[in-house]
Design a protein around this nucleic acid. Structure first.
Length: 344
DNA sequence: CAATAGGATGGAT
DNA sequence: ATCCATCCTATTG
């Protein structure tokens, strides 16, 4: 009942996402610098890494740091080819983008990593070829998986060409947020996905000299993924590796606004992507811990288009679940630890 | 100081 | 009416 001008501070001023989305809360240093303390998110990638090392791929080097330190997005794997000119025949429009200032901050799929259905030229059956394929499909799988994750989070569809201008903005904010790019959303206002897809790298750079090339490269990845998806579904129904993930990817388009508890479940289902900020302590009992409250709140804000979201507000919403019997505090109450009343 | 608990209010659906 | 988002006060470790 008090005055309507209560909260000039937090919201009233910014109609769109404010310019502080990926800013101060989580210091970049703790991610780029520290080489330890990534225990749980290793789970998914570790086997792959081991496999690679066992085979001792001569020409391929997978930079696991690029993979593991990119926060929510583990899909930006840098694959460098050091060996002979045995280029693999991949017709993808993936462009190479050199990281400018912070090599480890700007992970991009480098080289022909996204190749699917390699020509298999020469049935040499070389071990090397085989490993190359494995790596490629692994990378493709990661890319698809994480695009799917982003789509669910942002509630957009994977194919950029179908995006509305609102979708484009979401994608831009998301990408900027993930890679700590300078804000460039304004430069692409009113553009639809179709417009965006029609733009050259040069066009991108013109609109955003700072990060246009990076954004263009990322869009290329999305375009390629959509192209692959279509190609796979149109052609024979051969399903490989990561493609299965696409087939079950359409569950999010149900229209109903997502509930907070559902959202938390989604994050918990993807420890590979979000294990750093939220994880199970006891999956059977539904006990989970929010490891990075600010980060989880930011993700929730992204999902709901509430740029001013923070943990204070998010936790208030969680507390509303106490009465409803959806979430509660575990028997031994711990900081940032909650429990689903009805574990799956 | 950050987390926790819960009341009040207003907005969206 | 439900589900938050926001704001706030008080308490706690």
């Amino acid at each position: 009942m008090s005055s309507p001008g209560e909260s000039l501070s937090s919201e009233g001023s910014s109609p769109l996402f404010p310019s502080r989305l990926g800013l101060p809360e989580s210091p970049l240093g703790d991610r780029t610098g520290a080489g330890a303390g990534m225990a749980w998110e290793m789970e998914d990638t570790k086997p792959c890494m081991e496999a690679l090392e066992h085979r001792g791929l001569p020409g391929l080097h997978l930079s696991c740091f690029d993979m593991l330190f990119t926060e929510d997005s583990t899909w930006l794997v840098k694959v460098t080819e050091a060996s002979s000119g045995q280029a693999c025949p991949v017709p993808l429009p993936i462009t190479r983008t050199e990281p400018r200032e912070e090599p480890e901050q700007c992970p991009v799929i480098d080289s022909q990593a996204l190749g699917l259905s390699p020509g298999l030229e020469g049935q040499e059956g070389q071990e090397e070829e085989r490993s190359l394929e494995q790596v490629q499909s692994m990378v493709v799988g990661e890319v698809l998986k994480d695009i799917e994750t982003a789509c669910k989070l942002l509630n957009i569809i994977p194919d950029p060409i179908e995006w509305s201008s609102g979708n484009v903005q979401k994608w831009l904010l998301w990408t900027e947020h993930l890679y700590r790019l300078p804000q460039a959303g304004k430069a692409f206002q009113e553009l639809t996905g179709k417009d965006l897809c029609a733009m050259s790298e040069e066009d991108f750079r013109q609109r955003s000299p700072q990060c246009g090339d990076t954004l263009h490269a990322h869009l290329d990845i999305w375009k390629s993924a959509a192209w692959m998806k279509e190609r796979c579904s149109v052609g024979d129904s051969k399903i490989t590796g990561g493609d299965e993930l696409w087939l079950e990817a359409d569950s999010s388009c149900s229209g109903q606004p997502i509930h907070l508890w559902q959202f938390l479940r989604e994050l918990l289902l993807k420890p590979h992507n979000y294990g750093r900020c939220i994880r199970w302590l006891n999956k059977e009992k539904g006990i989970f811990k929010i490891e990075d409250s600010a980060h989880v709140a930011r993700l929730w804000g992204l999902r709901k288009n509430r740029p001013a979201m923070n943990y204070d507000k998010l936790s208030r919403s969680i507390r509303q679940y106490y009465k409803k019997g959806i979430i509660r505090k575990p028997d031994v109450s711990q900081r940032l630890v909650y429990q689903f009343v009805h574990p799956v």
